[in-house]
Each structure stands twice: as structure tokens, then as C-alpha cells.
Design a protein around this nucleic acid. Structure first.
Lengths: 164, 164
DNA sequence: GTCAGTGCAAACTTTTTGCAACTAC
DNA sequence: GTAGTTGCAAAAAGTTTGCACTGAC
């Protein structure tokens, strides 16, 4: 059963509290505000986006340094995962989220998620030596349908122009 | 049949030449020196490493700007692929190389390659909508056996100390 | 001879760090 | 009260860009 968004936000708060306690970190308002903002988002975000969003939408001012610090805690607490497409690091919430894979268009840079349980099953059941996997990322690169169409159109135009 | 290293270096040179011709780029000594250095390497490298290596080992001085420019051409020519573990972008040759996957230790950062044909087969035969895949990257994150052992040792020491 | 490509340095972007002020405990 | 956190600004690290010079065509 997929829990609704409000319950998830409560649950991750509790998990984070336990994590902070266990590691002797303080429960600051900044940390909870950041966690909550992240769990109000869908999909990927980078630090700059989060920074702007917190100030504008949540009306909560935090420094970039605190964002970077807190993200590290959230990564360690397994509440957020990190991706590195494009130029800046991207993050996404990962608690109670369906496992998904990524399509990345090498032409326009667009990132699309998709779910494929067979794929997921095979990857999760792959054992390599004594390596103890906690999570994984699968990125598939290629040309998205939109760019494909645009390219075909360009081709056709070129051909027509050369005929004139 | 896997071709030996010297033939591969000749082949990629030809492929690159065709690529350059097709796209109206010039055949400069820098470009060939960079390609050749990359194909003399095994595994991953970043721009800084390549820069140092070319100067020290190959005795060929190129600017970082040229390295960045040339890498883009090599990416487009499908002779190199790009990874983004850690802080700087990592690259590797990809012509005539066995497809492999990556284990990344979240504790020490070490990256290990492994080959698994079943995994490869399943991923390569996954079709998602109209997306036209050219290549993919699978990164599995976790604790490598070395760190695992180190952690256990630390644990044991702690327990023994608390007994005293 | 021309213009793409190169080297260099400056600019830019993202992330990290040092430090004074603050606050959770 | 004290030490972990925060914000700020400076620094670092990686990459891109502008420009004068060079050399592939």
C-alpha cells in the first residue's frame, strides 16, 4: 500500500529524528524545513532550485551551506539519493518511492523516469562478490522521441531544399 | 574476437578521421595525440589526470581547453563515454570494450567494474516507449568488502574497549 | 590566405571551508 | 555554559569563454 503524502512527510520526519538522535546531531528547525520541502517536491532538484524554492514558496531562509550540510545528513539517513546528470548534482527523495530508472536524452538533456519491475528485479538480485549493495542508478542514454521527430523534420527540409 | 590493443588504436584513429572529415573538423596532431593517450589507458580518467599524463608520459603539451574540446568530439564520435561519479567528470574509452557495470563504494569512493552478461542482456533489450537508447550506465552503490571488514574491526574494538 | 583550432588567462559555476554569531541541549 | 549549527564571505575545484596567435586546408 502506498501511503499518502502527508503520512509520508510525518514518517520521514520521525526517521530523520531517530537518525539525528542516533548520531548525536541536533534537531534544528532548518533541518526539518529542508526535509519537508524536499518531500513536498516530485522528481529531481538541485541545490539552487531548493534554495530559491525554500525562500519563495516556504518563506524559509536558509544558507546554501546549510543546504549542502543537511543534504549530506539526508543522504546518510537514506532519505534522499543523489544523481549527477548535467552540470550540477541532482537529488530526489527516496523514502516510500517506487524504484525507477532514468532515460536521458543526449540531445536536449531531458530526464524521464520509468518503472520496470523485471529490470528492477534482475538488478536487485545481482550479487557481485562481497559487495553489499544499498541502492543503484540506471541511466539509459539516447535520443528522446521529441528530438527524434525534430531531427527527421530537419532531414526532410534539407532534402527538399536541395531539390529546389 | 577481441582485437589486440595496437589494432584498436589504429581502428579508432580511422573512425575519428572519418568523423572529423564528415563534420568538417580539422585533423590536428593534438586531437590524435589525445585519442591515442586515452586508448593507451585502462579504466577511468578525468581531465586533470589526462592533462598530467600527456605531459609526463607522452611528452605532449596540450591545454586543458583543448582537452575539453576534444573530449566533446570523442563523445559525439562514440569513442569515449562520460561518467559522473565523485566530483569531476570521469571518462573512458568505449570502442571495442566489453560492456561493464560499476560498483561504487559509498564509504571510500572506490569504483570497481564488473561484467555480467545476463544483466547486460536484460538492460539492452528493455524498450521504453519510443526512446532510442544508444548506451547506458549502471551504478551500484554500497559498501565494498574492504570497508566492510574495516567497519567490523572498528566495531569489535569499540566493544572490547567498553568492556575494560 | 583563410578560418578552425590552440593556448592562455579570465570568468563563471558549483561546492567547500573558515570563522563569528547563534541556539539546541 | 558549551559545543554543534548556521550564515556569510572567501576559497577551491572544475569547466567554459574571449581573444590573439598558429597551422591545417
Amino acid at each position: 500500500m502506498m501511503t499518502d503524502n502527508q503520512s509520508v512527510r510525518e514518517e520521514v520526519k520521525q526517521i530523520f529524528t531517530e537518525y539525528l538522535k542516533k548520531h548525536g546531531h541536533r534537531k534544528t528547525p532548518e533541518r526539518y524545513a529542508i526535509l519537508d520541502t524536499i518531500y513536498s517536491l516530485d522528481g529531481h532538484f538541485d541545490i539552487e532550485t531548493l534554495y530559491t524554492l525554500m525562500e519563495e514558496k516556504e518563506n524559509f531562509r536558509v544558507s546554501r551551506a546549510t543546504l549542502y550540510n543537511t543534504i549530506i545528513l539526508l543522504l546518510n539517513a537514506n532519505l534522499v539519493i543523489k544523481h549527477q546528470f548535467g552540470t550540477s548534482s541532482q537529488y530526489e527523495k527516496c523514502y516510500n518511492r517506487e524504484t525507477h530508472h532514468h532515460l536521458i536524452c543526449t540531445q536536449c538533456g531531458k530526464v524521464t523516469e520509468f518503472v520496470n519491475e523485471e529490470l528492477q528485479h534482475v538488478i536487485e538480485h545481482t550479487r557481485v562478490g562481497r559487495f553489499n549493495m544499498s541502492h543503484y542508478s540506471l541511466y539509459m542514454y539516447g535520443i528522446c522521441s521529441r528530438c527524434e521527430r525534430a531531427n527527421k523534420r530537419k532531414m526532410t527540409n534539407k532534402l527538399q531544399n536541395s531539390k529546389k
